[in-house]
Design a binder for these strands. Sequence first.
DNA 1: TATTGTTATACTCTATAACTATA
DNA 2: TATAGTTATAGAGTATAACAATA
Lengths: 151, 151
Amino acid sequence: MAAKDETPYVETVDTSYLETLVGYNARRAALFVIGNFMERMAVFDLRTVDFSVLSLIHHNAGITSRQLCSHLNILAPNMVVMLNGLERKKLVERRPHPLDGRATGLHLTAKGQSLMVEAEAAAYQLEMDSTSRLTTTERNTLVRLLKKIYK
Amino acid sequence: MAAKDETPYVETVDTSYLETLVGYNARRAALFVIGNFMERMAVFDLRTVDFSVLSLIHHNAGITSRQLCSHLNILAPNMVVMLNGLERKKLVERRPHPLDGRATGLHLTAKGQSLMVEAEAAAYQLEMDSTSRLTTTERNTLVRLLKKIYK
DNA sequence: TATTGTTATACTCTATAACTATA
DNA sequence: TATAGTTATAGAGTATAACAATA
């Protein structure tokens, strides 16, 4: 510790105040899990946001760009660029929407489907690894409490 | 629902798969809380990252730039720009480090201190509001489980 | 030789305005 | 008139390389 009346300095940083905040802890936990996620998804050449988009298309064949945007909090112009990339990689294809001539329905290609089956299996394994210090009950409790905040 | 053999479309988006993932839920909860945080801190003309930096300096007088960087996951060149801004606003001042001639110790000005007393009180109130659907016990459990993931 | 702070710069991500075609 | 998709572009945030001063 620095003596009184002199310019103080810090040996070990005290983060106890920030650690009382839910937002701080949720952000750090999210960054930790997502950091692992990014590493693991690099094998599939997918970013976190690519995974989210492809996963929603996977489980919602024919979803529109607009629906993706509102559920993932992505702006329409940025979604266009992302979908162009995924289409270029032959993972996604755009088809005309059967009911609305303005819209386009999004679908996974065969390549996209087999990729996502693998990627979602890897994601499950990763989730288990990232939360390995939690019991199954704790993990369920955590997810339940997090949903209570934002839903 | 779309009939068989025709191009399918989506009426209500199914997000149940993504919602099983801790990372997805932690990120959404963090974005919700931090979104409220940003709104409330706008009165003080502070971004989330400014609050974190000022709070760490507040509770660690004399902390170095490098120590801030490692605890907040910010790169040194970007921290310099941030600290220049906070110094220009007369919230922070840099003093020579008493032991290491290369380093500079960071300190809140009187203005910075009174701002942070107010801002931290507002942050506490905001935390309570953002997690109002949780009981005190649930809130403590949530923080404990989040820490178990990243610490 | 390694570390702290710094400058300059590149890159990615996010946001805004405006256009087109369909409803 | 409003909405879905798109283009172009601006701005914020993040990352890399290189340098001076000090350890």
